[in-house]
């Protein structure tokens, strides 16, 4: 089985977000970058599937050179080789187009990624990739097993879950608890250094461009209500905040 795992390189979820250059660029100073948390689940499940029944894992990042530590980490966790499409990942369609181009070349049985990236949160790249390739896509997948060329999955739906199966090839957006995040061991880190990482140019054109970034307005002070007069809160929510 050939698995393609797509990873994003994003600021750590605890990062404080700020901007530079007249609010036209993300301020990367002091920001720790990580593999997208959902992508990390997809990678972990791919490694488990490889350990269980054998597979080769290619990790793919659409991004600039500063994503390479995250790609090396994915190789250390258990991917066999890596591809980086050397371009800024501006919009969902553009990124999906790059992934689909790589996928067409590689003929993968399974294309895994996170349900969304934690920076732009659109959650549509897997669907666009599936459509371009003409194969089904499902998201968010919480459980995944492969038996005889058929994927057995549990998918979260609004207010519940759905158990379904579909023949490979598939594109899946993953989320917990599909697998536990894996921490690379020393041997993995050593071998990752020499695993192949191919850098290729992008094709197509970006469909969006960001003009300017901004931060939400500062929140006003919090109005405190004494615990022994808790019922007053309901009156305030009704008369002052007008949400009840």
């Amino acid at each position: 089985m050939k698995i393609l795992v797509c990873i994003s390189s994003v600021p750590d979820t605890t990062s404080k977000i700020s901007f530079t250059d007249g609010d036209t660029k993300l301020n990367k100073a002091g920001v720790q970058y990580i593999i997208g948390p959902y992508d990390d689940y997809a990678l972990a499940r791919a490694v488990e599937l490889k350990e269980k029944s054998g597979a080769t894992i290619t990790v793919l990042n659409v991004g600039e050179a500063d994503a390479e530590p995250q790609i090396r980490k994915a190789l250390a966790i258990g991917a066999d080789d890596a591809i980086r499409v050397d371009v800024e990942p501006t919009d969902s369609y553009f990124v999906a187009e790059q992934i689909a181009a790589v996928a067409k070349e590689g003929n993968y049985d399974l294309i895994l990624m996170g349900r969304e990236t934690s920076d732009y949160n659109s959650g549509v790249v897997h669907g666009i990739v599936g459509e371009i390739l003409g194969i089904p896509s499902f998201s968010p997948v919480m459980q995944l097993d492969i038996e005889g060329g058929v994927a057995k999955m549990t998918r979260e739906i609004e207010g519940g879950k759905e158990i379904l199966e579909a023949p490979l090839p598939l594109v899946l957006g993953c989320q917990e608890p599909i697998a536990e995040w894996k921490i690379p061991n020393m041997r993995g880190i050593m071998t990752a250094r020499t695993k192949p990482l191919k850098v290729i140019p992008a094709s197509g054109e970006a469909l969006t461009a960001t003009d300017k970034y901004s931060l939400p307005p500062a929140k006003g002070p919090c109005k405190m209500i004494p615990a022994d007069e808790a019922e007053k809160l309901i009156e305030l929510l009704h008369k002052e905040a007008k949400v009840l």
Binding site: D91, G127, V129, F138, T208
Partner: peptide
């Protein structure tokens, strides 16, 4: 919504449309 994301994503794949979320 999760259904709308999945549906519009696939439609965008055919229509070559930019998807702007949130």
């Amino acid at each position: 919504s999760s259904l709308a994301d999945a549906v519009t994503a696939r439609a965008a794949g055919t229509l070559k449309a930019a998807v702007v979320g949130n």
